[in-house]
Simulated assay, not measured.
Amino acid sequence: MVLSVLVNKPNRVLERQKYIQASKKPLHYRMPRSGLYLSLYYSAFTVGCVGITYSCYNLIKGKPATE
């Protein structure tokens, strides 16, 4: 069967549940690669906020008057 690799996988829910519940880290850092995901999210959030702030500044400043 072609999809047997995807369908016949071991159930690791209990292992992961024990790992997460036994961890003393903050909840958002307990999963594997969570540091990577959070740093990407924080980076995108920072770039978005800086872009919005820069755009608002340019809208408020306006274009120079030409005669």
Rank of each mutant, 00 (worst) to 15 (best):
N11Y: 05
K63S: 14
R33T: 08
H28R: 08
G35F: 03
P10F: 01
N8M: 09
P64N: 03
V5P: 06
R30V: 00
Q17P: 00
K18I: 06
Y37L: 14
I20T: 07
N11D: 15
Y29T: 14
V5H: 11
V47D: 06
Q17A: 15
L14M: 13
H28D: 10
Y57P: 02
V47G: 05
G62M: 00
S43E: 06
V5G: 14
H28K: 07
P26Q: 02
A22G: 04
A65F: 09
S4I: 09
K61P: 04
P32L: 06
C56T: 12
K61Y: 06
N58I: 04
T53H: 08
P26Y: 01
G48D: 01
A22V: 04
E15Y: 14
L27F: 08
I52A: 14
R16C: 13
S34I: 01
I20V: 10
R12G: 13
F45E: 10
N8S: 14
R33P: 00
L27V: 09
Y42P: 04
L59A: 13
L27M: 08
R33K: 13
M31Y: 08
S23K: 02
K24M: 04
H28M: 09
Y41M: 10
Y29G: 01
V50H: 01
L36V: 14
R30G: 00
G35C: 00
P32E: 09
I20H: 05
A44M: 11
C49N: 10
L3E: 11
K18F: 09
V50G: 05
I60D: 00
M31G: 07
L6S: 11
S4M: 12
H28S: 09
R30E: 01
Y42F: 10
R33I: 07
K63T: 15
M31R: 06
A44P: 03
K63W: 06
K18C: 10
N11K: 09
K63A: 12
G48N: 05
S23Y: 02
P26V: 03
P10E: 04
Y29S: 09
R16L: 08
L14D: 15
T53V: 05
L40T: 09
L38I: 15
A65E: 15
G48V: 02
I60Q: 01
V47H: 04
L14Y: 10
G51N: 03
V5T: 13
Y54E: 07
K63I: 08
S34C: 02
Y42Q: 06
N58C: 14
G51F: 02
V13A: 11
V50P: 01
V5E: 12
N8K: 13
L38P: 02
N58R: 15
